[in-house]
């Protein structure tokens, strides 16, 4: 069981190690950690901390994609929930009320998406596009177009504070990932989500309530987006409706893809998606540390990501597999067993 998990996430672990190695090569102090005012301080903490929004989104996105769906609205939902949280504290509410209100708003957004997809049977990419476009407008209405700043220490701590010297966002995404991971794998949900994603018709005929399941999955994604929205809002002590979560849905989808999850649904690994999110953040970190002119930012990012995806493409993976198989007798036998005669055709 554990060995199977490690085998599943091995490519992501290797890639993450490579990208972190690249960071280290450019900046030898990369792994250095020190304490400042009771706060753990270092590049590696930055990767974990700054990766929080995409990591949070990728948890929900993994589930949605496993059902053969997609959620383009998560960035806009971040803006909405951030605006809701900021409005609550500026109106005098406590940070707990702000948190609950933001989670409620995220849940509503998720249910809306789920309703369009599961009940009205609108294609997920179209259904969630609605909220992607409209959501930012809703957020701007809430903040009246300005950055809604606040000084509530509780809400600030959620995005910019620390617990036991570690930045709060790291705690939030790790806890969420563990909770969702446990719920999905220790209950039957994971199996039922995968079955629905692979073959919804078979799943329905086998008695799975695919409709409610789909709505639940979009709901969880909305909650993840709400947490991400709170983190970025608390971090800058203000709700920036124009920029909060902008294009972040694409990073979340990319994290899921780098995590080796198929966009066609089915088998999924939340751990691998989280590694994908950390890989993306490490790439961002490498770009910032490189000191290259800004005009190169996107080109460098594109090149690294293309390289990662090429390494993961089934064809390349298969040739690596065959190459390894031909180098050792034990592996060769396994390759032949798995692939029939194919293994022998490619020495």
């Amino acid at each position: 069981m554990i060995r199977a998990t490690i085998r599943r996430i091995l490519p992501q672990l290797v890639i993450l190690a490579l990208v972190l190695g690249l960071n280290f090569a450019m900046f030898p102090g990369f792994f250095h950690l020190e304490m400042h005012n009771g706060r753990l301080f270092g590049n590696i903490i930055d990767v974990l901390n700054r990766g929080a929004p995409v990591a949070l989104l990728s948890v929900g996105m993994t589930l949605v994609i496993a059902t053969r769906g997609i959620d383009l609205s998560v960035g806009a939902v971040m803006a909405i929930t951030g605006a809701v949280a900021a409005s609550v504290v500026t109106e005098g509410g406590s940070w707990i009320m702000a948190l609950l209100a933001a989670l409620g708003a995220g849940a509503l957004c998720g249910i809306w998406n789920g309703f369009l997809v599961a009940v009205l049977r609108i294609q997920p990419i179209v259904a969630t596009l609605v909220l992607m476009v409209a959501g930012r407008g809703i957020a701007q209405l809430l903040t009246k177009g300005a950055i809604l700043t606040f000084n509530d220490p509780g809400l600030i701590r959620l995005g910019g504070g620390t617990i036991l010297s570690v930045p709060t966002p790291i705690w939030i995404w790790v806890t969420l990932a563990v909770v969702v991971g446990l719920v999905v794998r220790r209950t039957a949900l994971g199996l039922l989500i995968e079955a629905t994603g692979i073959n919804e018709r078979s799943a329905r005929l086998a008695g799975i309530n695919a409709k409610v399941l789909l709505i639940a999955v979009y709901l969880v994604t909305g909650l993840c987006a709400a947490l991400a929205g709170i983190v970025v809002t608390g971090d800058i002590r203000g709700a920036d409706a124009n920029n909060a979560g902008l294009w972040m849905e694409l990073d979340a989808i990319l994290a899921v893809v780098i995590g080796g999850n198929s966009l066609l649904g089915g088998r999924f690994s939340i751990t691998a998606s989280l590694l994908g999110a950390l890989i993306i953040q490490s790439v961002n970190s490498a770009i910032l540390l490189s000191g290259m002119p800004v005009e190169f930012n996107l080109v460098i990012k594109a090149i690294i990501i293309i390289a990662i995806l090429v390494i993961q493409s089934p064809r390349v993976k298969h040739s690596i597999y065959l190459l390894r198989a031909s180098s050792g007798p034990v592996l060769a036998r396994r390759a032949v067993a798995a692939k029939g005669a194919v293994g022998e055709d490619h020495p």
Partner: peptide, 26 residues
């Protein structure tokens, strides 16, 4: 000594500044 884009936004400004600080001896 370092110049990067912060996209005119608060959050990007904070993130990029963090990396400047790390890269320049804290």
């Amino acid at each position: 000594i370092r110049s990067q884009t912060g996209d005119f936004t608060r959050s990007q400004g904070k993130i990029v500044m963090e990396s400047f600080l790390k890269a320049e001896n804290g």
